[in-house]
Design a protein around this nucleic acid. Structure first.
Lengths: 278, 278
DNA sequence: TTGCTCCTCACGTCACGTGAGGTGGC
DNA sequence: TTGCTCCTCACGTCACGTGAGGTGGC
């Protein structure tokens, strides 16, 4: 009994009620948001003046608002929040929290994913900007580059770059590796590259999830400017350079697009780096 | 010249164009999304049939779509994406990527924040569920609990729980600690708690950001059921228990609400844990 | 009377999703 | 003719934000 009196005394304390303006300032919410939440039945003011229909809020409602903010920050639809709020018990809220903890994990992974994507992209574009002229050929020591291979492009009659690339697109989607990562083409040897430079034996993405890598070591490095599959005379010039300098390219060739439709409008300005293992 | 021929040959290859259905499947986008992106000028098909206005997409557009997906995943408005896309250069894209890397950092912090909030909440509610009956009093060894103190509640005439709590709300907002974390009241001594249990000397939140803590050690622990500020006879019973067991509570008293409006509908079922340092 | 706060519609916004109603090629 | 794909409106959705037009207390 005494408890009820105390409860009533503190719970219906009109002195401590706040106008919508005061309350919105304390909560850091727009008045329009509070009215909207009232409209959809998510969160109602503690008291409503019957004559002028002014809304009045109680101090402890601040806590509830903060909880709603946390939940909606987790992208839970307001309808769902309203639903759990109406029939809340310690058990249901606990269950909701457990669900959200695992949802948050997924979300955090997604963001780390995005982080790695833009980080790789930064590096790639930076390399593209710093790249020497297209006719510059040199020997360089390169570090390991994590990549994810697509399946082999069957070198059948009439298969062109585009058809092969579409295949790769499908494949990349299946194995959930990135078409959002820089893309390249792989040739098993320099000879193969010179013979048919516009159709790689395999595509790959610069993506650590693939588990493959371009081995660290010495490479003969050249650049081409132009649309996908177009290599101009760079393959020949690289082969010639190798002969002149008595270098024997023994390993595979990697063509990586540093600048493509992501950062360049005119396709004839795309820039690829060609690395032949020696 | 030769380059132009090659370029034209590969770029305007009608054979490799895809219908909107094929393209949407490869990209993992709804057709309606592609139409919408076309409408707002964000992303247009490579070719449009003039007679029936069918949309046709080129293979390399998959890469562009993936880039747009990455950017919109970062909550960049489509208008902004369209804008940078139209006048993209390696330099502008690089700049955008740098900006996004720092935005992502902020976002990741926000999520870690939410993570810690729901984690603490889970623990608290779980304790509330596991709590013994309200009349159970015992001595327990408790670990350290990270908390964030509010400022002192001036114990002036007529100041009640609600007024003090509103003060704390404002304060908590300023120092950006959590009203979304479990809240409690602090009393400097058991005597002070027994004298006026409904108005704590300070409020606090269970939040590591405060830098304060409830020291680890032995505590006299009791529970109250009821609305904020209502402690019933628990203070007296705890004092009595101490006398009977020849325990001298020398330290401060912490009242933590394990179950409040977040997880319980009826305010008379709120549950607080009372810990008096001994 | 002037300012301030509050109210209730109504409409706009963003990024689509969902039909409705119609066309076109096999 | 039947199925399938494509098209263009138009309207709905979600969580508000933004006036417009009006009230009420000092």
């Amino acid at each position: 009994m005494e408890m009820n009196i105390t409860k009533t005394k503190t719970f219906r304390n009109r002195d401590s009620l706040m106008s919508i303006k005061q309350f919105s300032e304390i909560c850091g919410l727009e008045q329009s948001t509070l009215r909207y939440w009232d409209d959809i039945g998510l969160f109602r003011p503690a008291y409503r003046n019957a004559e002028n229909s002014y809304r009045y809020y109680a101090p402890e409602q601040v806590v509830q608002v903060n909880f709603i903010k946390v939940l909606s920050n987790l992208n839970i639809p307001l309808k769902v929040i309203a639903n759990v709020g109406e029939k809340r018990t310690p058990e249901t809220i606990l269950k909701l929290m457990e669900q959200q903890e695992s949802r948050l994990d997924t979300e955090l992974n997604r963001l780390h994913e995005a982080y790695s994507t833009i980080h790789t992209l930064r590096n790639t574009i930076q390399q593209g900007i710093n790249a020497p002229d297209a006719d510059h050929i040199s020997v360089q020591a390169l570090g390991a580059l994590p990549i994810a291979f697509g399946s082999e492009n069957k070198n059948q009659e009439g298969q062109n770059f585009h058809q092969a690339f579409m295949q790769y697109s499908r494949h990349a989607k299946e194995i959930r590796t990135g078409l959002s990562k820089p893309i390249g083409g792989w040739f098993e040897s320099m000879q193969r590259f010179v013979e048919n430079p516009s159709l790689p034996s395999r595509f790959f993405s610069v993506d650590p999830r693939g588990g493959d890598q371009r081995a660290p070591g010495k490479y003969l490095v050249g650049y081409t400017q132009g649309y996908y599959g177009y290599q101009g005379d760079t393959p020949l010039r690289m082969a010639e350079y190798a002969r002149e300098h008595r270098i024997v390219p023994r390993g595979p060739v990697y063509v990586i697009y540093l600048l493509d439709e992501i950062s360049v409008k005119d396709p004839s300005n795309y820039l690829a780096q060609i690395c032949a293992a020696i």
